[in-house]
Amino acid sequence: MIAKLFLAAVFLPLYPLSIPQNALVMRMKSPWLRAILLLVWPQIGVAVLQAAPADISNGLVIWAMASAGFYALRLLTVRDLGLWASMLASSALALVWGLAANGADVWSLRLFALSFSLPAALLVLLAGQLTLRFGAAYSGLYGGLADSQPRLAALLVSSVLAAIATPLFPGFFGMLTLLHTLDWGFDFGLLLVWLLWSWAGFLLLQGFLFGPVRQAARPDLSGRATAGFVFLLVVLVLAGLALRGGGL
């Protein structure tokens, strides 16, 4: 039982067991592999957690909240988009423990995990596109994406907003569910984590979107690729509204 919980803590990352996930994401070169890892990793965690017969203790929830807060605070000074997406996933996916501790069914856990891992996966794919064009996906290194690459900029904004649980993305409703489920003492911590995500998200965006264009002109994202990203985001919103709408 302990071994299963330990394994679940690797896949639904609790610091320091979250280190393998972030190290793997940073080691992988292919954006697609990174995205698949971010999507599959927490789903394995949910499956392992379901297989563990024991109730989740309050201590584990405290550990999960501390881990989420730890990564949320660190996000503030992360400038690499790929690492940022991975750390945000580490922060958000730790919260699955809070839902699980209060008896949420496996379907709710999978949806909650997906509502954060899918935006993170989209972000690593966008990081791949930025690396192709500029050699790195680093906030503050080159500005003015909003003017020079409007499609890429719009997708980046939407994905970051989805990742930091902004309405109408499913993460927002997931956070409401979690707040309703947890004890009030945890609610304060959760709200602080949410605030830190927003702070970090907009700091990251500012470094990419604004300021004068410092690079030679690069082609924007193709129409087909844009349509693909938009489709995924629209599906995310609609699925969130249909499956998690209301949250409370």
Partner: peptide, 13 residues
Amino acid sequence: RIGDLPLVLAAVL
């Protein structure tokens, strides 16, 4: 955002 959070908590309560 700082102001949003108390309203969220109020709604939950």
